[in-house]
């Protein structure tokens, strides 16, 4: 198969970026999208041009490193899947493919298609944890968790932290990411003591990072490789309202 690539190139955060066009020739349909970029990069290297920088690591859809907007969709046209799980057989031969980074103000560009997503780490640092000192945990089966809650918790916990939700959101909102972590811990009894503080701090950090606001378009859940449901955002809203009430009304 042959493709024409329209790729965003930008040397660093300060320089001005632009699109560049490359040919990808003789690509086997079983080649993954990232492997296709590898091939193009090897050709660029041979021609003494700078290879296209893009992030990837596990290449099996779980680490969340890959972050490409392909033909106007975060992670490309096949959902649910991360960009690394996208194969060239999903594209029509001879077509032009536009590749852009995930775009949001809190994701500053590092180079070409690589962005800095440390904003997401800072949201977790603000409260996305349960304080449990190693050595002080009670026996694991001493607190039963209803299966229904445990199942909901893992559905939310499946988030791979790729940031596609914010990239796809018309408002660049990271609400789905934050909602997933808040919900995961709110569904478990172990998360109860810090429940109020957690949601308050995480939402405050999310806002401070400069993400946009949720307008319930649900574009996030459509592109989420971990199939996190936007109903967790409703859960986040509920948790937040509850926290505000508790903190303003008191006991």
């Amino acid at each position: 198969m042959n493709f024409q690539l329209n790729v965003w190139r930008q040397a660093n955060a300060k320089s001005k970026g632009k699109f560049a066009t490359y040919e990808a020739r003789n690509i086997a349909p079983d080649t993954s999208f990232l492997e296709m970029l590898d091939i193009v990069n090897d050709e660029l290297t041979e021609r003494s041009e700078a290879p296209i920088a893009f992030d990837s690591d596990c290449r099996e859809g779980i680490c969340g490193a890959c972050a490409l907007t392909i033909n106007g969709q975060a992670h490309g046209p096949k959902h649910p899947a991360a960009a690394c799980q996208l194969y060239m057989r999903s594209f029509d031969d001879g077509k032009t493919i536009t590749v852009e980074p995930f775009r949001a103000k809190p994701f500053p560009l590092v180079r070409d298609l690589v962005i800095d997503r440390s904003a997401l780490d800072r949201i977790v640092q603000a409260g996305g944890f349960i304080a449990a000192r190693a050595g002080s945990a009670p026996e694991a089966n001493s607190i039963p968790v209803p299966k229904h809650n445990a199942d909901l918790a893992i559905e939310a916990a499946a988030c791979i932290g790729c940031g596609a939700c914010a990239a796809a959101c018309p408002n660049a909102s990271a609400m789905l990411f934050t909602a997933a972590k808040v919900s995961h811990l709110a569904f478990l009894p172990q998360g109860a003591p810090e429940r109020t503080l957690r949601v308050t701090k995480m939402v405050r950090q999310m806002d401070a990072e400069g993400f946009g606001n949720c307008t319930n378009t649900y574009e996030c859940e459509a592109v989420c490789p971990a199939e996190i449901s936007a109903s967790f955002i409703a859960k986040l809203n509920r948790e937040y309202a509850r926290a505000v009430l508790q903190r303003s009304v008191g006991e």
């Binding site: 918790a153 995961h184 172990q190």
Partner: peptide, 8 residues
């Protein structure tokens, strides 16, 4: 330890 941390 992991259960207490909220590992589902």
């Amino acid at each position: 330890q992991c259960t207490e941390q909220g590992v589902p």
